[in-house]
Amino acid sequence: MSSALTRRGAAVLLAAAGCLGLFAAQARATELFVTNEIDDTVTVLNGQNYKVIATIPTDQRPRGIVATPDHKYVLVCDGDSSNIDVIDVKTLKVVRRIDTGPDPETLAMSPSGDKVYVSNENNALVTVINFATGKWITQVPVGIEPEGLAVTRHGHTVVVVSETTSMAHFIDTKTWKVVANVLVDTRPRIAEFTPDQHWLWVSSEVGGTVSVINPRTHKIVHIIYFHIPGVDREYIGPVGVRFTTDGRLAFVALGRANRVAVINAKTYRVEKYILVGQRPWQMMFSPHRRRLFVVNGLTNDVTIIDVSSLQPVRSVPVGRLPWGIAVIP
């Protein structure tokens, strides 16, 4: 940690001395921020050599994590402390805490970064917070055990999935009303829009499927199933969903099947299953989506997948029961 700060400190000094353009580009290597649910910490990894730069203490039970659109902060939901930790990516310290109401599980930000959306798992609510002031704008009642959130590119719609009600709820951000509810397979965890915004993919952990929803008609257009030779159906628990920039490939983390499925996002055919660590849930790309980082909850590590070859290239230890990941370019 100290060496990282020294490096950053030096960079800041040199930048101040007038070498701004040159050094600003060199000083900031990509960094990975991983929440460790049991340790109450965030592990920060260097995105080139994957060495641990820092272990940041958080409040209790950190799970959901996102970077602000300007990449200045990383926000962490502390489920058992009812708040968000705001980590300054320069100092790697928690600089602020935002009250979220009880049991925040995960969060998303508006495209401009002015609003934070939090799913309050225990109270069937989405809390909308003004990021600058920390004040609550509203709370939207949704289904039971809300979790994954997705925001459209222009920020007009927020989707939240509820694990026990098994629905994707579409919230209009002008009126803060739920405008549509789509019943999906059992225990939905994550919602993710395709890069062209034409489709919404929702993973169902217990149902073992991914539903592809037309966000204009709110109808399911396709259901993706997974069949892995030698793995019992009950162990296939889809959670994290990510798309390549061109929208051609989708990656779906399959939980206790210990694999990430690679899916042709146009034909919905599963092209490959990549073996990773145990119980992968959340995933995030490197800045140019050349690498996919897969967080393995039970093996306490992150598997790094090379996106062009679709091969796992490395795994890196983090804290205990790692849950979510954010990447700062």
Partner: peptide, 18 residues
Amino acid sequence: VLLASVSASAAYAAPVAA
């Protein structure tokens, strides 16, 4: 301990009907 901070009314707020 967790329960202390959860209000019953909030937990049972019904979703907005469409």
